[in-house]
Design a protein around this nucleic acid. Structure first.
Lengths: 125, 125
DNA sequence: GCTATTTTTGAGACAGCGTCTCAATAACCG
DNA sequence: CGGTTATTGAGACGCTGTCTCAAAAATAGC
């Protein structure tokens, strides 16, 4: 129900997901929505981006992936992980205790690029 | 006043910055604090990280820098930009129209690594 | 099929963050 | 000084996300 509302592949705030999900199940409560989102996040199916006014959610094709997000259509496209790994190696690898530049043990990270995808750039600029 | 509250180099939520700034100027209002932070952000002196419960602020040594943040002491250390540039090149360079892999024109990005700095890792595990 | 127990659900209260309005104050300028 | 403008602080407000709690639904045992 909640997952289906995200199948468009766009970044959505909780309020929009609630509105979409209520089409299939009118009266769906906020608490239930947030419980479902937390569950989907725990299982790695949904990723969260912190926006200006709260979190934005989108389906996550594979766990620990990173995305580039179109400013116009808010679609999220996965970033090939080669370059991400190279960057992480410069700071120390997650979960390992060796190879720490800067002296940090890296535990987690968030990365979000924003821009215009090819379709939207042609359409609007 | 507000800038001085951030001089410890740590990530702070607005409420803590307000408490610190009120030592020097009791009765300082929330609106004034947020106006000052917005101004400092516009001039590139302060960077914002979206946390679980709202934004966290820290002084930014140079504009468009990225940071690695210690989970324990919340200190933010600048990341050398070599690897960042390499990653951006894999997607297309900000502001340029050539070299766009994935078809995206990259306009902006946020990057935050979290982990334990050497000091905190020795102290707690 | 019926009851008892457990789990899930929705409504609403609640707290925190950040924005906005507005009157009071301060700064500026003649 | 007096008049104009900019800045400030108090509080109301909206929004997000969490929590509580009773009702509803699912499950188990008989």
């Amino acid at each position: 129900m909640v997952r289906r509302a995200l199948e468009g592949g766009h970044l959505l705030p909780a309020r929009d997901i609630l509105a979409l999900a209520r089409r299939a199940r009118p009266g769906l409560g906020r608490a239930t929505l947030y419980r479902a989102l937390a569950s989907l996040w725990r299982s790695g199916e949904v990723a969260v981006v912190k926006g200006e006014r709260g979190s934005l959610f989108h389906l996550c094709p594979r766990p620990h992936s990173h995305h580039i997000i179109c400013r116009s259509c808010l679609r999220a496209v996965e970033i090939p992980s080669d370059e991400m790994h190279r960057l992480e190696a410069a700071l120390g690898r997650t979960g390992e205790k060796t190879g720490r530049a800067l002296g940090f043990r890296v535990e987690g990270h968030t990365l979000e690029f924003t821009g215009l995808c090819a379709t939207c750039e042609e359409g609007s600029g």
